[in-house]
Design a binder for these strands. Structure first.
Lengths: 228, 228
DNA sequence: TTGGATCCATTTTTGGATCCCA
DNA sequence: TGGGATCCAAAAATGGATCCAA
């Protein structure tokens, strides 16, 4: 009988659940869940995140809503290396190419998603078998004034370029805390976007991502330690 | 071995294929296609249309493109009663609620879809078992000046109302040739639309439909006769 | 190291239309 | 009778992310 709890009724309850997972292996969680651990994540890239959604009682699949709807909290798994540093960027959301230019950061999906985030640390080193990887400490984060300011700067720069129809000139190099990278099935995927003249044309779908250096700073500020 | 022809290379070839189907039953086409005929269309409302797409070599599933892409021709099955009159309205396309107001009829999806249409007449009387219903004569149609004028009048009236955010006040009664009706899973479905203040709100998805009286007039003008 | 590319499951949208009760 | 409601399959979008070559 899989463990599938109801949504947590308070932040405290969610926090307590998340802390109780620290130290457990993915194999342990998978057994509780009644699912099997994939050998590699290559063909199951979202597996860890979805496993934790079920275990923590996130209301799955809700669209443009926080994972814990009633609490306004977003869940993100954060894979770290042996030194406790994030080894991947963190996907935030896809970019609505047609209307993003007219949106202020304060009203944006990025701001809403990041308003309150439960980061669950997970071992992510490639040489640890997926089944043996352990859950670490959780971290409940809201952007500090400084972090918010960094994100807003990146938002203004990046959406400005997109609004001028110059998204094709954006590379992952832009942005200090947040970057724009492809978010698609493959490099041939296209969706509707704007060109330099404001005409609707086919563009590669892209998303906003938090840089690993940014989430690393968050962990350090909170004194989140490496797993022993 | 199902009959699945390549796309027709010319209008003449498509016309010839369509004419060769006249008189055949849906059971006959289904056998050729390697599929089975549903008892009722209640749970297979698009079945006849999709059967004919495959039989005529339409490039299936292409988005916002004519069914016969290279030829610029759209395929529509047209169910008729025993007197040869259309017994249903004809769906044209869904309504992009956010941008439809700024579009001139000449540039609209409606105009593009209807630029050249292959109507394939099919018996549609409910008391004829689906399997026994026969294909009738095809008709290649482009709007006459008068028909185009009628459609443009309806377009201007309907999109004007939508642009003012008053789509909730539109009923199927409006429009002489073309009307706006729900196009959704059910009456609870919602997508993004505009309210009276231009604010994005949840609205029922709707589509443009040609009235049966309009397609009836097209058949009569072309002397398309009832099936014997 | 990391920016560009890619992978899966699930939900939403689109395109094919017909049903059915007031 | 026909306007409002509904049905299905397939494609596209979204949300979960990690892979990997330079």
């Amino acid at each position: 009988m899989p463990i599938r709890p109801a949504p947590p009724r308070s932040e405290a309850e969610l926090w307590s659940r998340a802390r109780s997972l620290a130290g457990l292996s993915l194999a342990h969680l998978a057994t509780d869940d009644g699912c099997t651990v994939p050998d590699k994540l290559l063909h199951a890239k979202g597996w860890v995140g979805q496993l934790l959604e079920r275990r923590l009682g996130a209301s799955a699949g809700s669209k443009d809503e926080p994972d814990f709807q009633a609490l306004g909290i977003e869940l993100k798994t954060l894979p770290v290396d042996r030194t406790g540093r994030p080894c991947e960027s963190t996907f935030v959301c896809t970019i609505p190419l047609l209307d993003v230019a007219g949106t202020e950061f304060e009203q944006s999906r990025v701001r809403r998603k990041l308003n309150r985030v439960l980061f669950v640390i997970v071992e992510g080193s490639r040489d640890i078998p997926v089944a043996n990887r352990r859950i670490g400490e959780p971290l409940l984060w809201s952007p500090s004034e400084q972090e918010e300011s960094l994100l807003k700067q990146d938002w203004d720069e990046l959406t400005g370029i997109i609004g001028r129809g110059e998204i094709e000139s954006i590379t992952g190099h832009l942005g200090n805390a947040m970057q724009v990278r492809p978010k698609a099935r493959d490099s041939h995927a296209r969706r509707r976007g704007l060109d330099e003249d404001g005409v609707v044309v086919a563009r590669m779908p892209r998303g906003f991502y938090l840089r690993a250096t940014f989430t690393r700073a968050i962990l350090e500020r909170s004194f989140v330690l490496p797993l022993p």
